[in-house]
Nucleic acid binder design. Structure first.
Lengths: 196, 196
DNA sequence: CCTACCGATCGGTAGG
DNA sequence: CCTACCGATCGGTAGG
């Protein structure tokens, strides 16, 4: 973000962005505020002009991300009624998000449990909302006779985590674009539920 | 492990087991040696009679686990030549391990990156060996015309991470046994590669 | 197995 | 935005 020698005013967004990068790379407990400050070329106490606490940084990152996931899901599936269309749209949106928001996904998955209560429970509840929405699509597809799968719950877990893992290996300079990866994973999801 | 009031001699295995539980729950950087000592009802310095350092505890856990994964893979696929049989056996073993060694899987996946060099690179190389072996099975299946999948690499990622995620939600007292889960996931893997 | 203690570093505050 | 500094806690050691 900030290049050596440049004079850039630190903003809340810049602090969050540096925190995101470092939390993703080193973990929440593995990152010191002095490292975030160092990345922004300021002293640690200066950070407190742009944030409340280290914990609040994590909370903001997690809240924005899980909210974004739910918004993505709603936008992608809104208006669709066919279970196959809905699963396809939900999987594409989820896989795409994990290719385009890698740091956020890594932090949410690794460090949500480091949040203090009641925030931890609140964020986990939001994540569960998405889980249930995805599972509901599969159950509807099974009920409608469009999908063929023994356990919708296990299928839901498998599809979700397969998408989440994209954040761990995807590279912007790799051989496939985020859209291409999302397309492939959508195909995997349809195969898992026996939709083809 | 140690119940209140009982007099139990602490062993290296007991220290490793407590470390495993706490690292899995709180993360390597989120766990203090004082907590491991507390779980064993001794003072922190006493731990040093049974370990070299906190880092060495993590290294031991990671090394044993990744070695175990490779041994599992070899034992499961040894003697099998049919790509479908090999993928089935490899997936079953991998999923089963993640249901039966949940703590180990969580620690390896979250905290291998906290290892010091050269250990970090060594452990990551061992993990990559398994990744490549799994991918090779899919590539052989495609080459033999037995599997139908656009990208063996992506399919390999998807199958692997789907199995890894079992460690995050499986419960011994849940509705399915580890074997039943492994069986379902094996079915998902075969569907992903288009083997049926 | 313990008490006593080490230097280092942590997140955060005072005060300007 | 800074320097100076706080109490707490960290992993680890000395010495018995």
């Amino acid at each position: 973000m900030t290049r050596t020698g440049e004079r850039t005013t630190v903003t809340s967004d810049a602090v969050l962005d540096s925190a995101l990068t470092l939390f993703a790379a080193l973990g929440y407990h593995g990152t010191a505020l002095s490292q975030i400050a160092g990345a922004l070329e300021v002293r640690t106490p200066s950070l407190y002009n742009h944030m409340r606490s280290k914990h609040d940084l994590l909370l903001t990152i997690v809240r924005r991300t899980v909210t974004g996931v739910l918004d993505d899901f709603t936008a992608a599936t809104d208006g669709l009624t066919d279970p196959r269309d809905r699963l396809l749209a939900a999987t594409r949106a989820y896989a795409l998000r994990h290719a385009t928001h890698r740091r956020e996904a890594i932090v949410v998955n690794r460090d949500t449990s480091s949040l203090d209560e009641p925030h931890r429970s609140e964020m986990q509840a939001l994540r569960r909302t998405h889980d249930h929405a995805l599972r509901a699509i599969i159950e509807e597809g099974v009920a409608a006779g469009r999908f063929s799968i023994d356990s919708p719950a296990l299928g839901s877990f498998a599809i979700r985590e397969m998408c989440v893992s994209v954040a761990r290996w995807f590279r912007d300079d790799g051989p496939m674009t985020a859209e291409q990866v999302a397309e492939e994973y959508t195909g995997f999801a349809l195969r898992i539920v026996g939709a083809e």
